[in-house]
Design a protein around this nucleic acid. Structure first.
Lengths: 336, 336
DNA sequence: TTGAAAGCGCTAACAC
DNA sequence: GTGTTAGCGCTTTCAA
């Protein structure tokens, strides 16, 4: 008996009249045991409610079957949505997710990484979190497979999955130009994020290619409240934009509410609004937001595949997956 | 060196010229070591990047510092929101959350519970998931502390945290009656959930006390899409309600969208709508939803406290915390 | 195929 | 205060 009251492999061995190592073998898929003995052991195990202790197993095999997830917050529904699929996908592969909140970005992320290493997690997924160079180095040295989710990282040892945010930003610029907008503005996300940078870069490039320039710009930091303030600042100017691209859907909702309810503007008659992500709420009739869809399922599946491959082959090189987004046209953009 | 390349307590012991157990003591808060030796050990540890292996520690102490969370899905933002606070609160106490998705309720929940026991988690939090009687029994036998979050369970060995859903439902009925509504309907959540049952029970009791009866009722199952359908069914009748209580905010948004955008009804002029939870979106101007606030922070803190107390004192009886909700009046209900 | 023995990295008596 | 010793529950040689 274990201290916690559950049976050990010794208890089962005794009950089945075999050695402890035979019990172990019965629960190791690849080891060979005669069917007769195996059945006797399984019966005894079922009788006693025995299941192998994963922690003890992890000690020897070095395989905890735990993957760490580092995430800053769940305010933007894109992340809980991804999380749900991630946990499910990993669970299907015999892994489980141990979550580490990196609430106050930067400073304490290091500590969090150290803590997660203590659990001997087999891999690490970073979502909505950037990595300092020192941290990247530390992780690379720990030789633990890492995949950045929805962020890109330059370090060659770090895998990543994202959608093509540059192309997405560009598609938005083209769409806005094609539909005849001329005073086009941008509300940025947190400037430390690669998604923010890439979306903006693509957007500006698309504008430039169309012979246009940015009308105005504010920063919303990816938060609802900051986005509201950004919108108010932007529309306090004497002449306001006729289209605004907001760096993600979550902020776009805040912006739309300010425009409609505080400023009395109509969308899209007075201003067009376009977002990014295509979270479920974007399809709701109250917002009906034109946006670029990030393929969450495919991104999650890619992240899981990359991580598990790297766990299986630690010497394989890091890989990067960049998926295509798709412009989803809804009612928040005025047609030409 | 460990197989994974990191240093062991033996490496540190050698480097610091002390025994391995002294190293262990330096990293065990309560054990006593002379400051001089401790410093030497800490230096050597820092040098080698040593940190105690939590898995090995867990083997002996029986304390994995892992808490399992079983959750069905994150569609309703109330749950990711709670999750974020929960992970943070537990992290502050030196614990981390291992997540188990119980996607298809019922059948496979048993399997999930077995799996989670394999990790020797110290406690278990169940959110948005109900427990069959057999499962409840199994968990009780495993002698692992459990707390139900936002659900109530009758079993005397299971702790729980919820808000007073009966009182909340009653407050809604009273508010609707007070503001002069007469054709009052209800859109239910998943009928297996205690929150659904309690909210409805309180609501009906409140109606009865005010001399009123329910005008009509549909079931929305707590899902966005089901709620849309429920609303359409409800308003297909020749005469429609002048107020509808929707069992949670997440469904209420779907209902409001159907009423306004499909049916052309005005809220609250033509119909009043009231929800439950007070998720952040309810305060957004597009919905501006009157609702009953569930005190998420307090509920999470309560769950953590209950769980940790039970972990510390396994023989202590299970406890139940029921917090007060509060009616938050916004613009979705017509004033008398 | 099966059993005996070693040991994963650590904590917790027990001596000194 | 510090070292020695004995395991935690398991997988994995190594013999038989």
């Amino acid at each position: 008996m274990q201290r916690d009251g559950s049976a050990t492999s010794y208890d089962v061995a005794r009950a089945a009249g075999v050695s402890q190592s035979t019990v172990s073998r019965v629960f190791s898929p690849k080891a060979k045991v005669s069917e007769a003995v195996a059945q006797r052991v399984r019966d005894a195990a079922a009788q006693l409610g025995y299941r192998p202790n994963r922690l003890a197993r992890a000690m020897i095999t070095g395989r905890s079957r735990i993957v760490a997830l580092v995430v800053a917050h769940f305010e933007n529904p894109f992340y809980p949505d991804s999380f749900e699929h991630l946990a499910l996908a990993l669970q299907k592969e015999g892994y489980h997710v141990l979550t580490f909140m990196a609430a106050d970005l930067g400073a304490r992320t290091d500590e969090v990484i150290q803590e997660l290493l203590d659990y001997r997690v087999e891999g690490l997924i970073m979502a909505s979190v950037g990595l300092s160079n020192e941290l990247t180095q530390a992780i690379a040295e720990a030789e633990i497979p890492v995949v950045m989710f929805n962020r890109v990282q330059d370090h060659q040892d770090i895998s990543g999955v994202s959608s093509d945010n540059v192309a997405g930003g560009r598609a938005i610029a083209e769409h806005l130009l094609r539909t005849g907008h001329s005073r086009i503005s941008y509300i940025a996300g947190w400037e430390g994020a690669s998604t923010q940078r890439d979306r903006e870069a693509g957007f500006l490039a698309g504008l430039a290619d169309g012979g246009a320039t940015l009308f105005s710009r504010e920063v919303g930091d990816f938060h609802h409240d900051s986005a509201e303030k950004a919108a108010r600042r932007m529309f306090a100017a004497p002449v306001h934009p006729d289209a605004v691209f907001v760096a993600n859907d979550h902020m776009a909702f805040a912006v739309m509410d300010v425009l409609r309810h505080d400023l009395g503007l109509r969308i899209p008659e007075d201003v067009s609004v376009i977002g990014y992500d295509d979270v479920p709420t974007s399809a709701w009739k109250s917002y009906d937001l034109t946006t670029v869809r990030q393929p969450v399922r495919a991104m999650v599946d890619g992240a899981v595949r990359l991580l598990l491959e790297r766990i299986a082959h630690p010497d394989a090189p890091a890989a990067r997956i960049v998926l295509e987004g798709a412009l989803i046209e809804r009612g928040s953009v005025r047609r030409a």
